[in-house]
């Protein structure tokens, strides 16, 4: 076919919506509204900080291609904005137990079910599979899996949910005794923080068949922080 001169517009820089946050809400968070700013909790700040940083750098990268052409300088290597979210952000999401703790190592939690069932990890639709131990007889739908940012080993003969909410480096954690509601004793439920085979601290939770139903907690403290730095919550169902 003879060469035809075509007039084709440049493709757009983006090709997908940005679903991470909404301008209205994010903008209001940084608006000149004293009451809003004052009400921001510590966790808020970290969350907004990261959102803002990604927003700024992504906008910059998007404009990079345009800018490159506008000046006589060769400019950047002309990369348009990253349209699809890199895999690493998925991991970010998995271990976003504490955005303020910059120095926590980030990796998927390993869980050892007492029954020896194969450790199925990954996603099933919207749900993260394999972050808690099921007893083999449990047929109920998965309860809330909460990703932890510390290696977690759960050894249990009952259906449990375990979650860890804490800040600070794992190395600095001290774990208190496990207690039931209103300080009652926690028979059959224990949690321990000890170095694992590779030297890193591992949180081990054990639940015996004799454990009663209920919610048990163990407080995490740090030498340099006043008051509790977090809590391990074990819910026996």
């Amino acid at each position: 076919m003879p060469r035809v001169r075509r007039n084709t517009p440049r493709p757009p820089a983006r090709s997908a919506p940005d679903r991470r946050f909404v301008r209205g809400e994010a903008a209001r968070a940084t608006a000149t509204d004293p009451s809003a700013a004052r009400a921001a909790s510590p966790q808020d700040v970290g969350y907004e900080a990261i959102n803002g940083a990604y927003r700024v750098i992504d906008e910059y990268l998007r404009q990079g291609q345009k800018v490159a052409g506008e000046l006589w300088l060769p400019g950047t290597d002309g990369r348009p904005g990253i349209a699809d979210v890199p895999r690493v952000v998925e991991r970010f999401m998995q271990s976003a137990g504490d955005l303020g703790a910059a120095w926590l190592d980030l990796f998927a939690a390993g869980v050892t079910p007492a029954s020896g069932k194969p450790d199925a990890t990954g996603t099933a639709g919207p749900f993260r599979v394999g972050r808690r131990a099921d007893s083999p007889t449990s047929g109920s739908p998965a309860a809330a899996p909460v990703a932890s940012a510390v290696p977690l080993v759960v050894s249990t003969a009952r259906p449990v949910d375990v979650s860890v909410d804490a800040s600070g480096p794992v190395e600095s954690w001290s774990l208190g005794a496990v207690a039931g509601a209103r300080g009652s004793a926690a028979t059959g439920v224990s949690a321990r923080l000890a170095p694992g085979p590779d030297g890193r601290a591992v949180l081990t939770v054990k639940v015996a068949a004799t454990a009663k139903r209920g919610t048990f907690t163990a407080t995490i403290t740090r030498p340099d922080a006043e008051g509790p730095a977090g809590v391990v919550t074990i819910r026996v169902r």
Binding site: A143, D161, R235
Partner: peptide, 13 residues
Amino acid sequence: SVGGRLPEGPLHS
């Protein structure tokens, strides 16, 4: 409505 990171486990409960 506190916003930011929520303690998802306890809220779910």
